[in-house]
C-alpha cells in the first residue's frame, strides 16, 4: 500500500447514509433559497415532516472488507504490521467467536486475524469488536460501526427524519422505529433504489410511477407543492456523498 493511498481518508459526513451526512443535507436544504421560496407555507396546518425509509442495506451479505477500501485498509495494514506478541495481547480480549474464527484459519497469525476481521459480516461487526481492537482501528471505521449500531435497525433499514416547515429544514434525525416521530410523508425504497435516486440516476417521479419508490402521505399537498418536493430530492442528489456499499 502506498503512502498516497493511506492519506486518502474521508470524514464521516461524507458517507451515505449516515446521520452526519443527514446533517450536511439539512444544511444544504436550509441554504437553498429556491426551496425556501417554493416551500413557503409548507407544513402549516399539516405535518410537513418527511421520513426517507431506506430499506435493506446490504449489511447481512456484505462484509467489512466490502466497505470502501479507505475505511478498512488502515486496520488491515495495522494488524499485519503488529509483531505477533503485541497482536497476541490485542487478541486476548477478543470475543470467543473471533478467537475461534482466527484459530480455524491457516497461515501466519497477522494474516489470519486480518482476514477474520475483514470477512466479518457488517451486521455482526459491532458485536465482534472489542475495546483493544477499537484502539488500533481507524477512527472512521469506529464511527461507522457506532452508526451501524445506533442508527440502522436489525433488519438493515434506515429511517431518516427530516423536519420541514415553511421553506425551512427544522432538523434531522435517524429513527430506530418508523413511529418514533410524527411525520406527514414517508418516501420508501430499497437501498439500491435510494442509491440511484441520490445519484440522480433515478428520477423520483419515475421511481414512484415504476413502483421502485413509494410515497405515503397527503398527495394533494405533494401536488400543490410539487416543485418543492422535487427540489428536495434534487438537493439530496446534489449533496456530495460516498456510498458505504
Amino acid at each position: 500500500m502506498s503512502a498516497q493511498q493511506e492519506e486518502e481518508t474521508y470524514e464521516l459526513e461524507e458517507y451515505w447514509p449516515t446521520t452526519a451526512w443527514l446533517e450536511v443535507y439539512e444544511a444544504d436544504l436550509t441554504a437553498s433559497e429556491e426551496l425556501s421560496e417554493k416551500m413557503s407555507g409548507w407544513g402549516q396546518g399539516f405535518n410537513g415532516d418527511f421520513v426517507f425509509e431506506i430499506n435493506n442495506l446490504p449489511i447481512e451479505e456484505n462484509t467489512v472488507g466490502d466497505l470502501p477500501e479507505e475505511v478498512w485498509s488502515a486496520l488491515d495494514t495495522g494488524i499485519r504490521q503488529l509483531p505477533d506478541g503485541v497482536l497476541d495481547t490485542v487478541l486476548e480480549d477478543a470475543p470467543e467467536e473471533v478467537q475461534n474464527g482466527i484459530e480455524e484459519r491457516e497461515g501466519p497469525l497477522a494474516e489470519r486475524a486480518a482476514n477474520e476481521l475483514l470477512e466479518t459480516r457488517i451486521e455482526n461487526a459491532p458485536d465482534k469488536v472489542w475495546e483493544g481492537l477499537r484502539r488500533v482501528m481507524p477512527e472512521i471505521l469506529n464511527d461507522l460501526l457506532d452508526e451501524l449500531e445506533e442508527n440502522v435497525t436489525d433488519e438493515g433499514h434506515v429511517y431518516a427524519w427530516i423536519g420541514l416547515e415553511d421553506g425551512d429544514c427544522t432538523g434531522t434525525d435517524t429513527l430506530m422505529e418508523l413511529d418514533e416521530r410524527d411525520k406527514g410523508f414517508v418516501l420508501t425504497g430499497e437501498y439500491e433504489q435510494w442509491v440511484r435516486l441520490v445519484t440522480g440516476e433515478l428520477d423520483v417521479v419515475e421511481g414512484i410511477m415504476s413502483g421502485e419508490l413509494e410515497l405515503d402521505g397527503d398527495m394533494q399537498k405533494i401536488l400543490q407543492y410539487s416543485d418543492a418536493a422535487l427540489l428536495m430530492t434534487d438537493v439530496a442528489s446534489e449533496t456530495s456523498k460516498r456510498f458505504l456499499f
Partner: peptide
C-alpha cells in the same frame, strides 16, 4: 385520494 393517486401513477408507469 392519496391511494388512488398512487395506484394511478403505478398503472401509468407500468
Amino acid at each position: 385520494f392519496d391511494d388512488l393517486v398512487n395506484r394511478g401513477a403505478r398503472l401509468a408507469g407500468d
